[in-house]
Design a binder for these strands. Sequence first.
RNA 1: AGGGCCGUCGCCAAGCGGUAAGGCACUGGAUUUUGAUUCCAGCAUUCCCAGGUUCGAAUCCUGGCGGCCCUGCCA
Length: 557
Amino acid sequence: MSEETSKPLNFIERIVKEDLDSGKTPAIRTRFPPEPNGYLHIGHAKSIWLNFGLAQKFGGKCNLRMDDTNPEKEDEEYVESIKADVQWLGYQWDGEVHYASDYFEQLYEWAVHLIEAGKAFVCDLNAEEMRTYRGNLTEAGKDSPFRTRSIEENLDLFARMRAGEFADGSRTLRVKIDMASPNINLRDPVIYRIKRATHHQTGDKWCIYPSYDYAHGQGDALEGITHSVCTLEFEVHRPLYDWFINNLPVPAQPHQYEFSRLNVNYTITSKRKLKQLVDEKHVDGWNDPRMPTVSGMRRRGYTPKAINDFCEMAGVTKVEGVVDVGMLEFAIREDLNEISPRAMCVLRPLKVTLTNYPEDQVETMTAPVHPQHEEMGTREMPFCREVFIDQDDFLEEANKQFKRLVLGKRVRLRNSYVIEADEAIKDTDGKIIEIRARVIEGTVGNNPEDGVKPKGVIHWVSARDNVDCEVRLYDRLFNDPAPDAGGKNFLDSINPGSLAILSGCKGEIGLAQATLEDRYQFEREGYFVLDSKYSTAEKPVFNRVIGLKDTWEKAGA
RNA sequence: AGGGCCGUCGCCAAGCGGUAAGGCACUGGAUUUUGAUUCCAGCAUUCCCAGGUUCGAAUCCUGGCGGCCCUGCCA
């Protein structure tokens, strides 16, 4: 790639490159550190893309580390889903999965080290008292009355905390930094709390657990992480991160760098709110195709490539912005357009009887699997006297903008004949239930000899040989670009039309061979994939991943 | 006057003192048996604002304005 066409490095890539070039570090190691307390979403996908991508790009390694310091909120179910999601996105962590809990013993020893150095103390203040002593944004805090305990007493008390002699919440281990610091995170932060909770990895071995601030940087140091990348809200924690690294005999000196988290409009990425959608059954589970979770996007039919491309497109900066979902949709269409075999599927069938076509005749029509990729081969489909077209593709009369079938006018059946409509048959309610039309002889692959060209092209499927299926059309889950902004209740902006289930859809016969991995472009409709939850061999269920770009609807017709 | 961070096109985003990349969106127009794709063209005299330094400022300085984060024994 030439100088002028190569993409400029983002600020983190630039830091990495400089560290590598200067020899500050011979190789880099990053890590993706989720807390196993929920399912991964699009925001995590960006972190995964960034951390694993950085390692890939610069010939380094990336670890997967469960940040499991709060057993009350975590569960093995989540660690399993996290591993699956990371791999589905196309990444493989270096070595085994790591856990912050792997380091509990070492962390404990280092805590003792801090006590021995006179830098940590056991505090008996309860939560409310501690809040009072902490001061606030404009007023300095006060030293805890327990700050001056002797090293011996602290050592004894801390050992007894571990031994389970004290009640939950009754004491904490705190580090002595500065109660007057303008950075509240430095006002003698708690690094251990007593919490009798069974841990998904360590069981009941511990009743004291280290805090995130205390565990994270040390975990990085232990794993040899060189660049610890996290989101902006941890920026004010960096001085604490560095304090531990500088005051503990850690084996390495990792550094923390922060970038702005990904926000996408019409979308929420709060784990709490996502969980609420699931718990209150507003959606069909964590992997509901409308969810911005990795598992939801997977079930919806998004590809890992599209998600990774999207992350790259959005970029890495410290600016807190909101990316347009349109960019995500573009990334998906771009990938799917390239790789998807084409097929025809009539979503709202309307029967067309071709009155001049012999009752018992069947012709085999051949069509390219992908018009831009001849190497993908061809497909065949039977054509006969009765076919289905979409109800939206017929109008008794219309202006010349309408490029579909109109009474007395012609239209091309894609990959087949040009037909001309003669009559619309209606039921007693006036609803059109059948069209009677004629094929124009010799128009397969050719324009009509009489020079009257069809106005447009519509898709169709044989009414005798087809695959009956259900199709699920998804729209954005929220109507509001910022569902949870301000004081709004995000539930109020749920889009009631976010899921439309169409049954009795008719797909071309080749669709009977579809597998869960195959994504198709249903021509003129969009991209579709079998639903992993509801689809069966007898009754295929297709999810619409994303519609085709539609400049017609936008034109307001 | 608590501390930290951020402000470049409708949305992302390059740019790091030499005269505003790119992508999404949008608007033309060409090709098209998908109103898709592809293709070509257009789209910031201006970089939150105001001063200043300089031959020259989005880039440096000063002062404002606006936004976000931090007062969990969450991460």
